[in-house]
Structure formats: C-alpha cells, structure tokens
Amino acid sequence: MESKMSYQEFQERLCQEVQRELNQQGTYHCEVMQNQKNNAILWGLSVRKEDSSMAAVIYLDKPYQSYLRGKPLEEISRELISAYQDQKIPQIDETFFTDYETVKDRIQVRLVSREKNQAYYRRGPYKMHPMGAEVLFIELQSDREGTMQAQVTNKMAEQWKIPKSVLFQKALENTQSRNKAVFSAMGDVIAELIMGEGAEAPETEGVSPLYVLSNEKREYGATVLLYPDVLKAVRKRLGEDFYILPSSLHESIILPKGLVMMDVKELRDVVREINQNEVRPEEVLGNEVYEYRGATNRVRKCSKEDRER
C-alpha cells in the first residue's frame, strides 16, 4: 500500500503541480505560506499572476484531508486552479497603500480574540479592549460575493505618519457608518433564521431574558461593542445593568441582570460549552463573562469571586 505524504510534503508537491499547470497559460508565482486568520495560523497556497499586484490564498487543510481520503494530487491541483480562476481578484497598484488620503475612508476596525491573534499584533497597529483586541483593516472589495480586506501594517502606518489614536478613531467612524448596530430579542433572531428576514417571534408573556447585539451584516458583529454610546443605549432600553456573553466574533448575548437566575460561574460554563460545541474555533471571541455598569459606563470582566444573581 502506497504511503501517504506528510502535510509538508503534500504542500510542496501541490505547489509544484499547480504552478506547472498554470505556467502553461502564462507566468504565475506560487508559494506555500502561513497566514494569520482569526484565532489560527493556517497554511495556504499563494497564487499570483506575474502582472498582478494581488495574490489569492487558498487554504490547504481541507485539500489535504481529501488527499488522505484517497483523492489524487492531480485532481486536487485541478480543483484548486479552478477555484483560483473563479475568484475575482481586484487589481490594486502597490502605491494605493502608501497614500493615506486614498485609503482613509476604507480603514475599518475589528474586535478579535485577545489570546489567539499574536501575529496580528506583530504585523500592525492594535489596541487592547476588555473583551479582546482591536485590529485595523483596509476594505479592498465588498459585494455579494464577499468582502476582501488587508490588514493595516506597521509599515503602512509609518508611511502615513498619522497618530495611532487618529487611525483608530477614523476606523471606528468608518465601521459604524457602514454597518449599524442591531439589538434584538433572541426570539426574533431565531425567528428570522427559521422564517426569513423580518419575521418576528410569537408573543409571549413577560420580558425576554436574552438579547443579541450585532450589526446589520452579522459579520464581525462583536465590533459594535466599540461603538460610542451603544452599550449606554442598550442599558437605557433594558432599564438596568447587564451581562455580556461573547457568543462569537459575530455577535454578543446580552442578559439583563435582574432576569438572570445563574451565578457568574454558571454563565462562564455556558459560554465555554457554546464555544466548544457550537462555534467554529476561528470565530471564538472569548471564554469569559463580562458586565456593563451604567454608573461607570464601562465593560469589565467578571472575576471568579463574583457571585451576583
């Protein structure tokens, strides 16, 4: 029985095969590289046509699993080439990133996991937040097929000569103007998922104990926690302080304190169970429980000693 290649051997062989096939159509440059994705560093195949300034990155974990299950390397290579050719890669001159006036309205901010994104911190400007880390990106393309972004690097920031505080303020303004915050009862969110947009949950007695805070696109919706006065507005609507459960990068669960019949330890166990069983690893924001207090207008992590009901 033929022995299987290791992951590293597979990457190198696939890179050679893809480049050999593509170079029959022109001149292409292929290389295996590591790329920081949310909460993980993934191996990918970077493919760039010689006259293009932009490269596409195709991640190799799933292709390798297909190979281990018996799919021939040549077939995997053809599938990757087809996927690459189907992508619409914007052609952007490299000088685009050097002019702050050109890119300033495209800069946005994301809230990501604090512990699992060290490569982001080494590569570009960042700020720490009680619930994670703020990282800057430039939006290159956004349409029905998805969004393409590039991280703001330290080199870019040095070329722009713009203070870090100004960059983050501009990014927050851009992000908030393009993707408004949405605060909904959990029942309405579930009804929308089941019955379609605009659907409302059947009326029930009492007040909903669970709410969801996200954005209009429900992509990186936890970032709305950074928007000025959003949490203050949530407290005004609820009429009391509340807990924040980081259910994913895309949304947060809000629980009014007066309606919570669990202590902080039990809430923390709920968050960790959801992250382990319901959320993809790359979409986990954190495993802790946080609270918002109107008196201080601040978010703080609940300590192990907290036993509020």
Rank of each mutant, 00 (worst) to 15 (best):
I244N: 02
G239K: 09
L255K: 12
E251Y: 08
V230G: 07
F242A: 14
P228N: 09
Y227L: 09
G258P: 14
G258V: 09
L245S: 02
G258K: 12
P246S: 05
Y243E: 13
V230R: 01
L249P: 00
I253S: 05
S252K: 06
P246H: 05
L238T: 08
D229T: 04
Y243C: 14
F242D: 14
K232H: 09
K257F: 00
Y227G: 06
P256T: 11
A233R: 15
Y227A: 09
P256G: 11
P228Q: 10
I244S: 01
G258E: 14
V230N: 03
Y227P: 05
L231P: 04
S252L: 10
A233D: 15
P246C: 01
S247W: 06
L238P: 01
K236M: 06
L249I: 05
E251D: 06
L226V: 07
A233Y: 11
R237M: 08
Y243T: 11
K232L: 10
V234Q: 07
I253Q: 01
I254E: 05
L225H: 08
G258Q: 13
T223F: 04
E251R: 03
K257W: 00
L245G: 05
L225S: 09
P246L: 02
I253R: 01
E240C: 15
H250F: 05
S248D: 07
P256D: 13
L225Y: 06
T223Y: 03
L238R: 07
D229G: 00
E251W: 08
L231Y: 09
I244K: 02
P228H: 15
R237K: 14
L231I: 12
R235F: 03
P246W: 04
K236G: 04
K236P: 00
D229P: 01
G239E: 07
D241F: 12
S247G: 04
F242S: 13
G239T: 13
D241W: 09
Y243G: 11
L226D: 07
L231W: 03
D241T: 04
L245W: 05
Y227M: 06
V230F: 06
P246A: 06
E251T: 07
L238I: 10
L231G: 04
L231F: 08
K236A: 14
K257Q: 15
K232N: 11
G239F: 09
I244C: 01
E240P: 12
K236Y: 00
S252M: 11
L249Q: 04
S252R: 06
S248Y: 02
H250Q: 02
F242L: 15
K236R: 14
I254L: 12
K236F: 00
H250I: 02
L249D: 06
E240N: 11
I244M: 11
L226C: 10
L249F: 00
H250C: 01
V224C: 07
D229Y: 10
L238Y: 10
V234D: 02
I254H: 04
L249S: 03
D241K: 10
Y227C: 06
